[in-house]
Computed example of a mutant assay.
Amino acid sequence: MQATEKKIIYVTIDKVDDNPFQPRRSYDDKYIGELADSIKIEAKGEDAGYGVLQAPPTRKMPNGRYQIAAGHCRKRGVLRAGGTKFPLDVQELTDEDMQRIAIIENAQRQDMTHSDTAAAYLDYATRQGYSRNGDTATNDTAIAATAKALGKSPKVIKEYLAFGTLIPILQSVFDKGKLSFSIAADLASLAYADRMKVVRMITVQGKKAHEAEAMIAALIKERERQAQETALGMGGEQFALFDAPVVPPAARQAQAKYAADMQTVTATLARYGDAEGRELGAAIPALSLDVERERIRIMIATLRRMDAVFVTAQGQKDAAALVAR
């Protein structure tokens, strides 16, 4: 956007178009009525358009019409008040300028819904190179650029991008204030089936917000528990976090050793009386070989206390101890 001297003009309101990047999908009828009354008072008997105290930033289009970057409620207020004129602050504005101004102005208003905000942030971030299927580095750069342009933190932008992945019925639950937006990102991280459990709790069973929030927390805790078991070799597949850059080399070696150790446990218990399905700990005293019994006891104790991805200080020590064993 180029810095230019303000050029306020009055045009017939039927030549003024809305911002094509306007994120707001609905307008509060009561607020527009109150605004129209205020505009009439300020106009002091003149055309209602002269009652608008601040002309919105605008660009002139090649076809001679005008697009306002902001001021959509003011425009509707003038129309409600019966005005035919509208003041414009004509500037040189790009598409990106138009979008940024619209988002910033609407973000300052309380009646802007979370779903409208999420759609606006996604659209702006997409213009910066963001893609839900894109690589992490490119997306992080796009999110940082979006946050800087809109005056928000990257964390807020990420939360709204996550919120935007929810289906409309779930978004409406937050828009209506039935759930706090603070848990939206947590809900978005759940599997589709788990999300729908929350929907049924609220829309069908009529549960309260705190009950739904408690359920979301429980579902996340269960997911983490299952992931931990899988990461430690207790599940059928290896957990992807073991390949993450933060995992120390000793931990990678330990995870591979776990896979071999668990095969030993399975084979040992099959030979020494676990056919009845007794718990691992209960089966150990029945083993006749002292060396194998002690080996399995140490393994179980380590499995129970070791962090899932070995990123804690204690976890790294445990991993190193296993490798050295």
Rank of each mutant, 00 (worst) to 15 (best):
A3G: 05
T4D: 14
K6T: 11
K7F: 00
K7S: 14
I8L: 10
I13T: 12
D14T: 08
D18Q: 10
R24M: 04
D28C: 11
D28Q: 08
D28R: 09
I32Y: 04
G33K: 03
G33F: 07
E34R: 15
A36P: 07
S38F: 03
K40N: 04
A43N: 07
A43P: 07
K44Q: 12
K44I: 10
E46W: 14
D47T: 05
Q54F: 03
T58H: 09
R59E: 06
P62K: 07
G64M: 14
R65I: 13
Q67K: 11
I68Y: 00
A69H: 00
C73R: 04
C73W: 00
G77F: 14
G82D: 13
G82R: 14
F86G: 00
F86D: 03
L88K: 00
V90D: 08
V90K: 05
D97T: 05
R100S: 01
I103S: 00
I104Q: 01
N106T: 03
N106G: 07
D111H: 08
T113I: 01
Y121R: 00
L122H: 01
L122W: 04
D123M: 09
A125E: 11
R127N: 06
N133R: 14
G134A: 09
G134N: 02
D140A: 02
A142G: 10
A144L: 08
T146Q: 02
G151Q: 13
G151L: 13
S153V: 05
V156C: 02
I157Q: 00
K158L: 05
E159R: 08
Y160N: 01
L161E: 02
A162W: 03
I167D: 12
P168F: 12
P168M: 03
I169V: 12
Q171E: 06
V173R: 03
K176E: 14
K176L: 15
S180W: 02
I183G: 06
A184K: 02
A191P: 02
D194E: 15
R195W: 08
R195G: 03
V199H: 07
I202R: 00
K208Q: 14
H210V: 15
A214Y: 12
A218S: 11
L219W: 01
R223S: 11
E224H: 15
Q226F: 15
T230I: 12
T230A: 15
A231L: 06
A231N: 01
L232Y: 01
Q238T: 12
A244G: 13
P245N: 13
A254H: 02
A260C: 06
T264M: 07
T264A: 15
T268I: 09
A275P: 13
A275F: 14
G277Q: 09
R278N: 11
E279I: 08
G281I: 15
A282Q: 14
A282E: 11
P285Y: 11
L287M: 14
V291Q: 11
R293I: 05
R297A: 13
I300P: 07
R304F: 10
D318Q: 07
A320P: 01
A324M: 13
R325C: 06
